[in-house]
Design a protein around this nucleic acid. Structure first.
Length: 475
DNA sequence: GGTCGGAACT
DNA sequence: GAGTTCCGAC
């Protein structure tokens, strides 16, 4: 039984990892066991014990299953389908309101569903180590585009990077007319989030929302896109659509770009955003989470400082800014939000999180508070050491590796079964890398493949499957 | 139509 | 506190 539970320790983490990556669903006792609900942990462990004799986990590819995680729904496809059939409420007349009836928008906006996990919860993997007696909440790193080396290095690196200001932004900002703002500076949040900060309501701040969109293949680059991802510069390709989505998220049906833009402008004062002058609808994050997921082809080719990472061709031609909001309809109909594992900025250590602004405070340079427009120019450092991998090659989740690290830190004698499992998984990753390197001739990051992990009598069997995306075949 | 920031408001 | 709404000016 101990071995079984230890295997579950690994399987739980693996399952969580895969679910966040949107590649799997879990059913059976493990699905419950891997719930992030701490309250239910003990109860579910009992369920686990009762079901250990039966096949404990089914891991399989689920199209768009990450949408479930994104919206905090249970990882059941049937549930998904039901949800996808839901019609967004508040349909209004007029062409611009077409999007209001779109299904996927609600999915996006269900990010703050009361049923959804808090961001904190989503980013913690709960490991139950029977021999330790208590549930251990292990901070996990969600990093989709990373190399193994980067992952290792990341564990001791700051979670936010301060972004460089483009040269165009070095121009002194024109002095605004009128009096100096008497509005008190809202204190820039500290670099460390208190756990549970987002648990109430799960409402995203606007900057978080934008980052979410920038990591969503359906929104980026269609409605919002990077124009220079290394500098954190993005453009609201379809400002109306973005504002509409924001309004939907905030339950403000009258939201428009003018209003949303005011909120964005307040970010100037707080050092969260900069305006890229001379370019309409173009803003810059003062800093970005290091676990940003950059969607392939979401960056303007002409604006890239570094083209090494741009072998990807945009999947779709970016629309014009005045693109009909009907386009948003197609987006929302097909909207598959990114898996939680790719959620930005919320790379939680045990009790920390951060806003871009707060991260900046930890960088050399002017304080983010009370900065003059000229002071807003962010002191940049290159992102060469970033976790963000420059090439979009097969990857392995950092969470997975973290899990392996956690497992491997255990005592061999006490957790032999866990060790064996970790070794098995580790060797699987190595084989993936070797195969990929042979195929591409490049240094390759690892991608965790969909795996089938039936538990039989306390032993883990891992079968890899062909990865339909990479074209690489594994044993 | 985008941008800006003050002011009052939620 | 973090926007939202409205506004006049550019």
């Amino acid at each position: 039984m101990v071995d079984q539970q230890q295997d579950f320790l690994v399987l739980t983490a693996v399952s969580n990892c895969l679910k966040r990556r949107g590649q799997v669903k879990t059913t059976g006792p493990l699905a419950a066991y891997t719930s992030s609900s701490r309250v239910e942990t003990v109860k579910k462990r009992k369920q686990l014990d009762e079901h250990l004799a039966s096949p404990a986990v089914i891991v399989e590819q689920v199209p768009h299953s990450h949408l479930l995680s994104y919206s905090g729904l249970a990882c059941e496809q049937t549930h998904t389908d039901d949800h996808l059939l839901t019609t967004v409420e508040g349909s209004e007349s007029g062409d611009e309101e077409t999007m209001e009836t779109l299904v996927a928008a609600e999915t996006l906006l269900n990010m703050d569903s009361p049923d959804s996990l808090s961001l904190d919860q989503q980013h913690y993997t709960q490991l139950y180590v029977p021999s330790l007696g208590d549930a251990i909440t292990s901070p996990v790193t969600h990093q989709l585009m990373v190399s193994v080396e980067d992952i290792v290095g990341a564990l001791s690196q700051p979670q936010w990077v301060t972004l460089q200001r483009e040269s165009v932004a070095e121009q002194p900002k024109k002095k605004k007319r009128g009096k100096k703002s008497k509005r008190p500076e809202s204190p820039t949040p500290d670099i460390t989030f208190k756990r549970g900060k987002y648990s109430k309501g799960n409402t995203l701040y606007l900057w978080q929302f934008l980052i979410e969109l920038l990591q969503d293949r359906q929104a980026c680059p269609r409605y919002i896109k990077w124009t220079n991802r290394n500098a954190g510069i993005f453009k609201l390709v379809n400002s109306k659509a973005v504002a509409r989505l924001w309004g939907k998220h905030k339950n403000k049906p009258d939201m428009n770009y003018e209003t949303m833009g005011r909120a964005l402008r307040y970010y100037y004062q707080r050092g969260i955003l900069n305006k890229v002058e001379g370019q309409r609808l173009v803003y810059q994050f003062a800093s970005l989470p290091k676990d940003m997921v950059f969607i392939s082809g979401d960056e303007d080719q002409e604006d890239q400082g570094n083209h090494e990472d741009d072998e990807d061709v945009p999947e779709e031609s970016p629309p014009s800014s005045d693109q009909s909001l009907d386009d948003l309809a197609s987006y929302e109909h097909s909207f598959p939000p990114p898996p939680p594992s790719s959620r930005p900025g919320y790379q939680r250590s045990r009790q920390t999180s951060s806003t871009p602004a707060t991260a900046q405070r930890h960088q050399p340079g002017p304080k983010s508070e009370s900065r003059s427009p000229a002071q807003r120019r962010t002191v940049l450092r290159p992102l060469g050491g970033s976790l963000i991998q420059q090439q979009h090659l097969p990857i392995v989740s950092a969470e997975m590796l973290r899990t392996l690290q956690n497992v491997q830190s255990l005592q061999t004698g006490q957790h032999g079964s866990v060790f064996r499992t970790a070794q098995l998984l580790g060797s699987m990753c190595e084989r993936q890398a070797a195969t990929a390197e042979q195929t591409t001739g490049q240094i390759v990051t690892l991608q965790l493949l969909p795996v089938t992990c039936p538990v039989k009598q306390g032993k883990l069997e891992v079968k890899t499957e062909e990865d339909p995306d990479s074209g690489l075949t594994r044993e």
